[in-house]
Every structure is written in structure tokens, then in C-alpha cells.
Design a protein around this nucleic acid. Structure first.
Lengths: 191, 191, 191, 191
DNA sequence: CATGAATGAGTCTTCATTCAT
DNA sequence: AATGAATGAAGACTCATTCAT
């Protein structure tokens, strides 16, 4: 079990490094020193820098979060929920997570292995949102002629975009309000 | 004039390289070879690799595109316009542009000079969208109680998110339909 | 006794490794894994990788093989014996031995300790061959004006050369026939 | 042409290094410093350490030396020639050459590309010796029932063996006399 | 005795940058 | 203006060796 613990510490140090410097500018030495280990030790746990990064990515990708399960009792609550959505999401991840996920996004545009994994993850998330919207249609909260599939992609995109904006320095409240307004408008238009 | 032309060719070669490989993995040599110049020559035009990248970024940042100027005659046309928006945008940029802009986004999270420039650009785009929405409110096409500022951010985010999804392999039609659905819903909700 | 047995198993695993990969590319880890021991354990038996190699070398060097003791009854038998020589030698060593001995040869050109040991071994073998040839001269099988000393070196060289050729992919029958032809010609010339 | 000259200097520095330390223990840095260049420069001329080594090997392999062309007027001269053979050979190569060729031999037992090249070279040398012996048979200097093919291999082996013995510290005169005695005996036996 | 986790010096290789021509 | 040879700092990765358990 000790080994698993060290592995874990490496992963967290790596997340920090990758978050701060990005994949290419992160040095194995830097990761090692963050936890008082030597460079060589990292290679006992991960075959290469890329492997370490992929391990982290898979760690995230496998955490499928489903914050959309609860049913809002009324249509108004539904809107309120959607607005809360951002807050909910934000609280789940450790600080810094967004940044690594961004790195994963960047890397995935070049690394086929990562690209595939992230695409599958995206499809799973999409599925969750689709079935959520489906339920609301069935409950009569949304019109039945909406394009659920496309809207799910749109919501996901907006989420990704806002996350990136935040990384680029757009303030948290701005981002949160943007999400809420969008949700309010869209839900109104869908109802 | 000759000098400006060479500079231009370098910039375009660099855009291609940065698009394909990202900033860190782009080699000066690669850029040079694309236009049959020697590595050394690049340094006559740009002080460093970073400088070249910043020059490209500024080149993009200064291209403020305002495709929202035309006034739709009816509310229905407005919605149709918004749906066309994606198509419009897509046609403006050369293929590959998205990718460099993504690189710029990545870099801007670390490079203060770039961060500032991109933030200013973002504010300008935001301003354009805000005044566009404003006009629609004034024309009575949108309700006057909407949070124009936040919605502008939301639209921009959705745009950025979709662009990134496209880079990650989400198909063009999917992305386009997502944008259209979102716009239709939001405009309906705002009306 | 148990200790001697483990030591022996290490030596044999090492011989295999050195044979396959050569001294420099053999990893202590590889040797250890071949016999299900841990790397650390090797160091309880041998101070260093070099020490282990030297131990192996000495193991071989001390095996002075004297297949030249039997007296051929006639001159014709002598020639036949010489032709069989190759076969005889070949059977004595385990397969793979040639390869380690080649490694020893290589190393001995750099490692003084090994160089000395191998030189002494060489002199001993030379001595055996010299006295063998001497006996044949005394029996009147070879002319008395031959340069026994030099011929002994020549035979040894030819042997070494053929062994190396075999390692380099020259076929066993080719090598064997080469030895036989050489011996037949030389013995004829010496008779 | 300047480039070819630098390339040549690198090759010679490399030959020295490989001769002294062997492939694995030769450091690119060491090669570079021998000729006052930087490590990086080597990589402008050779893709990798292995490539540099292969280049050297091919350089040697392509030098097919044919010192057997001259016809001896008498049978006695033939023997004398053969005895001189060693001397002749020795003079052709630069000092140190034997050592690299030995390294090539070692490497060729593992590197398929090198193995093939050296085998082809070996076959060419073999061909030269075979036709030399053939000529002597035709001239009536050697008996026609000798196994020319096998004898050619035997001579080559003896040569290789002596070369290696020399590298291992056997003295030059010893080696030379060994060759002469062997040749005298074999030629006598073949005549 | 045995282990195997940890080490860190050592090496190859890359590539942005410089500069003499 | 252009070249391209040369540089050397930087960084990933390896592996013999050590040592606490």
C-alpha cells in the first residue's frame, strides 16, 4: 500500500507541475523535487513523462461526475438548478484541476491515445446531459421539438468556454453570471 | 516593401507550424524550411521564437471582426442570422487559424504580455456583442430585463467551447447544429 | 554450501546475460530476474558488476582444457585427430560460452586485471600445444626444423578466428571444414 | 568541401575514441572535444552515435584491399610472399585501425545492419583469396585436390585471430612469426 | 540473508540562438 | 540581406549501487 501512496503523491505533484507549466515545460526533476523524491524514482512508477501525463488524464477522465441526477420539483426550480450548476461543478474539482484538464485538451489534439480517451469521456458526459434534457421534456418542462442532442453539445461547449475564460483571467463572478444568464434564456426559450 | 513581404511569409509559415505542432514543439528550423529560408534569417525579422509568436498573436488580435453589424429586418431574421453566425465566422478565418488561436489561448495563460493583449481583444469583442444585443433590445426584439453583459460573455464562451470541440475532433455539422440550437433557444428565451 | 549454490546460480545467469548483451549492455536487474533474485542480493555475493564479470572470467580461465593428451598411434591418426579437434572443443563448452569468452577478450583489451589473467591462460594453453607438437617431433611425425612455438600461436589464432567467425554468423560446417583443411595442409607441410 | 573535411575529422576522432574505449564507453562529448568541436556539431553530421559508428564501419568495409594480386615468379617466392603478407597488411591500415575493426566485429554480433555489411565484406575478401589460391593451383604451385574454399576461410580466421591476439598484448614479432610459420607449413602441405 | 525502493551521476540528443562570411 | 555552421544549455531517461527494513 505504501507504493500506492507514493504513486499518489507523484500524481498530485505532477498535476501541480503540469497545471503551472504545461506539459512541455514541466520537468520531471521539478515534479520529483516537489515531493522530495529523486528523478529516478518517478521512473519506477511511470515509464515516461507521457505515461505519467496519460495516467493523470485517465484519472480525471474516469471520474464521471453526474450532478444532474436530482429532479427539480418545478420548472422554476429547474432554472434555479441550472444556474447553480456552475457553482456545483466548481466545488467538486480540486483547485488547479481546470488547468490540467486544459492541458489534457491541448495534448489530446495531438496525442491519439489521449484524444480517444477524452472523446469517449465527452460522449459519456453528453449522454448524461441528453438523458437529463430528455427527462425534462417528458415532464413537460421543455418543448418536445427541441434538438436535445445539439443542445447538450451546446451546453457542454459553453461550459468548456467559460472554464477557459476563467483560466485566461475572466473573473469568477463574471463567468458564473454568464452561465446563469445563458441558462435562464435558453431554458425560457426551450420551455 | 520587400522586407515586409518576407516578414509576411515568415508569419504565415509560422502560423502553419504553430498550428500543427503547438508553440513548444514548433522548431524554428521547420518554419524556415517551409519558405526556403535559413534559420538565421528568421532572426533578422524576429528577435526570438517568442517574439515571432507574439507578433502572430497581435496580428490576430488586431483583426477585430465585426460580423454583427447588419441589422436583421425582422425578429425571425435575427434568429436565422444568429444560426448563420457560425458559418460566417468559419469562412473568415483561414483553415488552421483556430488552432493557432487555441495556442495563443494556452500561451496567454502563462505569458503576461500575451494575456493582456488577448484580454483587451476579448473586451473589444465583448463590446461589439454587447452593443449588438443592446440594439436588439432597443428595437424591441429582446426583452429589456436581460443581462446583456453576461449574455455576451456566454455567447463568446459557447463559441470558444465549440471551436475547441472542433479541434478535438467533434464533427463540423455537430458543432454547427449545436450553435444553431443554442441560439434559437436563447433568442426565444430572450424575446 | 547454500551460499555457494546461490553464487553459482548468479554466475550462470550472468554468463547468459553477458553472452546475449555483452558487458556494457547487461543490466544487473536482468541477471537478478533470471534467477528470481533481487538486484540487491547480487551485491551480497559480488562487490560490483565488474567483480561479477571478473569472477566469471576467472571461472573460465581456470578451466584449462587439455584435449591433446592422447597419443595418436600413426601419423594418419594424428591428422584425423587434428581434424576432430574442432568437434572435440565444441562439445566441451556449454552453448553460449564462446560468446562470453569473446566478451572477456574484448574487456581484457581494457581491463588490466583481466588482461593479465587471460594472458596467463593463453600462455598455459600455448604451453600445452607446444609440448604436444614437441612430442610429435620426437616421435618423428613432424620434422624437427619446424618452429614449434610459432606454430602453436598460429593454431591458437586460427582457433580464435574461427570461433569469432562463428559468432559473426559463419556457418558451423564451414568453420569446421576450414579447420580440417588447414590442419591437413599444415600437418602435411610439417611432416 | 569544407563540410566534407569536418566530417572527416569527426570520423577520425571517432575512430580514436571507439578504438580506445569501445562503442558503449565512448562519449559523444569526448569525440567532439578531440577536435575542438561541440557535441551538438556532431549531430549536424551524423544522426546518432550509432550512425557515426556505422559510417565508420562502412568506411572500412568498403576499403577492400587486394594485396594478393601480384604473381610470384616461383613457388619459393610464393611462400616468401605469404610470409610477407602480414607485414604488408599491417602497413596499410593506420595504427588503431585494428581496434575499431575489432569493435565492429563485436557490434556486428548484435547490430543486424552491421552484421550484414560485414558479412558481405567477408565474402568479398573470401572471394579474393579463393581466386588467388585458384591461380596457384592453375600454375601448378598447389595440388589440385585442396579444398580452396575452406582454406580461404582458414587463412582469414588465422589472420583475424592473430590480429586479436595482438590487441590482447601478444607481441608483434610473435604474431608475425606465427603467421610465417603457418604459411610455410600450409603451403608446403598444399604443394 | 534477502529485499526492493530510492538515488543521482552520467549520457544522448535537441534546438533556440549567434555570428563570421 | 542571407546564410548555415557552430554552440551549449537543457532535459528525458538509465542503471549501478546503497541501505533501511
Amino acid at each position: 500500500m505504501h507504493k500506492a501512496e507514493v504513486r499518489d503523491r507523484i500524481i498530485h505533484a505532477a498535476i501541480e507541475s503540469f497545471s503551472q507549466a504545461g506539459f512541455d515545460r514541466t520537468k520531471m526533476d521539478d515534479i520529483a523535487r516537489r515531493i522530495g523524491l529523486s528523478k529516478g524514482t518517478l521512473y519506477l512508477y511511470f515509464k515516461s513523462k507521457e505515461d505519467l501525463f496519460i495516467a493523470i488524464s485517465e484519472h480525471y477522465i474516469n471520474q464521471l461526475r453526474e450532478p444532474l441526477d436530482a429532479e427539480a420539483p418545478t420548472r422554476e426550480d429547474l432554472v434555479a438548478d441550472a444556474e447553480q450548476f456552475y457553482e456545483t461543478f466548481r466545488k467538486i474539482g480540486r483547485p488547479g484541476d481546470d488547468r490540467v484538464i486544459f492541458e489534457m485538451l491541448v495534448e489530446s489534439t495531438r496525442n491519439p491515445r489521449l484524444k480517444k480517451a477524452m472523446h469517449e469521456h465527452r460522449l459519456r458526459v453528453h449522454g448524461v446531459i441528453v438523458s437529463y434534457l430528455q427527462r425534462q421534456v417528458e415532464r413537460g418542462f421543455f418543448r418536445s421539438d427541441i434538438d436535445i442532442d445539439s443542445l447538450a453539445w451546446a451546453f457542454m461547449s459553453a461550459w468548456v468556454g467559460l472554464t477557459i475564460y476563467k483560466l485566461c483571467g475572466v473573473s469568477e463572478p463574471t463567468v458564473k453570471k454568464a452561465w446563469a444568464s445563458m441558462m435562464r434564456a435558453a431554458y425560457a426559450g426551450m420551455g
